[in-house]
Design a binder for these strands. Sequence first.
DNA 1: CACTCCTGCTAAAACCATTTAGCAAATGCC
DNA 2: GGCATTTGCTAAATGGTTTTAGCAGGAGTG
Lengths: 361, 361
Amino acid sequence: MAIQNYRWRQHEADEGHQRLQKKRVTLADVARLAGLSTTAASMILTGRPDTRLSADAHAKVHAAAASLGYRPNAAARALRTDKSRTIAFISDYVATTRFASGLIRGALAAAEEAKHVMLVLETGGEPAREIEAVEAALDRQVDGLIFAAMRAREVFVPDIAISIPVVMLNGTSGRFPVSVLPDEYQGGRDAVRLLAEAGHVADIILLGHNAEEEAGLFRSETISRRFAGIRDEMAARGLTFMAELSCWNWEPDHGYGLTRAQLQKQRPRAMLCLNDRLAFGAYQALAEAGLSIPDDVALVSFDNDELASYLRPGLTTIALPHEEMGRTAVELLLHPQGSAGATLPMPVVWRGSIRTERPGS
Amino acid sequence: MAIQNYRWRQHEADEGHQRLQKKRVTLADVARLAGLSTTAASMILTGRPDTRLSADAHAKVHAAAASLGYRPNAAARALRTDKSRTIAFISDYVATTRFASGLIRGALAAAEEAKHVMLVLETGGEPAREIEAVEAALDRQVDGLIFAAMRAREVFVPDIAISIPVVMLNGTSGRFPVSVLPDEYQGGRDAVRLLAEAGHVADIILLGHNAEEEAGLFRSETISRRFAGIRDEMAARGLTFMAELSCWNWEPDHGYGLTRAQLQKQRPRAMLCLNDRLAFGAYQALAEAGLSIPDDVALVSFDNDELASYLRPGLTTIALPHEEMGRTAVELLLHPQGSAGATLPMPVVWRGSIRTERPGS
DNA sequence: CACTCCTGCTAAAACCATTTAGCAAATGCC
DNA sequence: GGCATTTGCTAAATGGTTTTAGCAGGAGTG
């Protein structure tokens, strides 16, 4: 009797505690309030099509769910259905390049629209961390994997059995055919076209030549295609470069140094820069030499780094459509279209570094 | 009989299929191989302290788990324990400022070290999305919430019952006391000290004054403290600004315009810029006026944007320790220290925009 | 010997949702 | 009226883990 009493009190105390902690509302609570079974509640709330439950039942369940503020327990659902409404975004580097944030932002937005959430994992390109990342994601029953290559170089292929959709973002892999890439080839052609249409048919410098990269030695499909586009459009117009300035890292420093050295030999009238950071360096060297942009020297570049809008005059550049790429990767992941990936156009962003009437298109 | 046969084949086909798909190995599989109960396997693999299982049992279970490549099902574990080894990083903007990637990168690294993964959510500062984000995170049983304020302005307080640890990152909230902030006050003092120690005791311009911000009207603890530090150090040294150039958005454009206008009135010998983008604009105006840095005009700035290293000469700046902040937020989330937050020092990054012998510290 | 206390282990419940199989009543059909 | 079909709903199994409660057998104690 004493024990009974004690238990009862204990129980009461627990009840109070629960009320305080607002213990999560479960489907059973909803069903109880609606006066139906959990089966009915589940079917109604998940919007099953072929159920024969009455309109009255629907109304009661929805009302109960709303009044209790029911939210399904994702873990329980994932356990049962093997789906988690979660996707994993596994990238080599998140912060190193600023590309990352655009890709992530686009992916995040698309995921949110599809009522999914995104797990972000960084591997630094290290195989051990890649494996850990994939397994961590798989453990959590993610519905799909995005492998994002920020540096667009090596293709990572963690050798784990993966039975969910995979999309490669800004990179390719022999193992996973669907990838989202910028249309670097057309971008390359466009860059040359821009210069040519502005009247530049001679005295053009190529800044950022890199033979290994161009040969695709790093399997960087993307960059070698950028070169191919440039070469093809130059050839199609019968143009040649006055010089090709080579370097490995496309950083401002190199852009500055190479341009400066070039200016002491022969002055170009136009520069085609392989990325905005190189162009930034070129700006510095040109300013130092007292040359004005675009009148003395015109520049066209690639990426549409934030930098490009900070320069004076603004840098006309062929943009990498990062947000679109991230978004597309998620959409392709959630709604696979066979094994076809996507190649997204690189829009021309007109600023002041090249003088021309903007053509219609 | 025919049906039987069919079923049997079907079954066999299924088996083959499963073998192909490498259906996940479960704890029961491990227990079976080890010849023990799942209870024993669970206790051993989770490393329970007070269990009385034999050394032999331990060995057998570990061997079985290893040989099968067992990985626990996170959903099942989360359902049972209410812990998911997942944290949610909810921020207003991911891509708008480049700060984001540093914060995320630091947080990601710390999470990985603690064997956690990170859910990234973006709200755009919109209340409806904030609520959605918090609920999505809570639904997934995350172990903690980080609210990151990229813009360091408004403090968001989605009014939802939250019973897990919360850390504010780069922002504050009345509701959640523990926050991780840069030591802007000391940063402000340091910036002035740098100038003074380089001999600049007059003709100093403050670029980026903003009365509202300084008054803390946007509850931006951080920025108003940066101002406070600057003011206090100026006062302590008996210095005053030659002029304070005000603007709202700290973008290069404004830095350029304000500096240019200032140069037509009165030439400063030093400039204290509220961020690197403003300093960038100042560089442009100074270059245009034919002034050299640091000989004609010295600059000190804040943030250590990637930009700062691109400039020539490099920009000396008081760095925001983004990675450290992200890392600290996660550590504080996983190992709460009462209601104490963290204030992280802003390191001085010496480059060439101010001439001085580097002091010891 | 009768008793308690360890030791080494396990059965079964619990977590919460989804889903399969099926039941009872009502309806339709001839 | 007898039969099959439809309607509207539910019991119970399922997913994989953790955890509570407790069992059998051996050792120790008086």
